[in-house]
Amino acid sequence: MSRLTPENEAIAREIISRYPKPKSALIPLLHLSQEQNGHVTDEAMVHLAELVDVTPAEVIGTCTFYEMFKREPVGRYVVNICTNIAFQLLGAEELLHHAEHRLGIKAGNTTPDGLFTIEDVECVAACTEAPCLTVNYRYFYKVDGEDFDAIVEDLRNGRQPTRKAAETGPDGAIPSHGTLALERQHIPADRAAGNADPDSAPAPVWLEQQA
């Protein structure tokens, strides 16, 4: 069962309603399905195709363009180590090797217990804090081997790692792979300005009246 659950389908419909054209919601919906299942399944893509009225081939076309979408199961924690230039200069490759050695897997793979996946990734926009890694897209700055071991240990034991975590508290908590924002946007019906229909939206009233 990896179509969206009824609750998630309701969320999906709310997301779709915020766009003038349903297909625009596709990437957020792929995230939603990944949040539900940990990865994006074929059944989920068929469901999303129905929801946004495109073919499954179009959904998979979009899905496979973006590297955050995993079509195979990955670890509960996806550890991304940036090795781009600013990080490489300050030891990212060593950190990556350490991580591979420590977890016994090469980058791109998942530990047999299904807990960790390591990825060698491009710039994560924390270049001044090199070397750095993210766990399920939560940042840890200026990480060395020892820090890495501590982070892994904490996660293994079900603790929120705090060492070198860039943000702590509820904002920085690490949910399992697939969950991004911890809060969803919600536009209350009585506050919504409404979508601007590309085929028929009129000139904005405030322009006309103020000009």
Partner: peptide
């Protein structure tokens, strides 16, 4: 005022 606009949060999925 008569100024109305929705700001919709959208997010990507990894592609420079």
């Amino acid at each position: 005022t008569n100024f109305s606009v929705d700001i919709v949060l959208h997010w990507g999925a990894g592609a420079y």
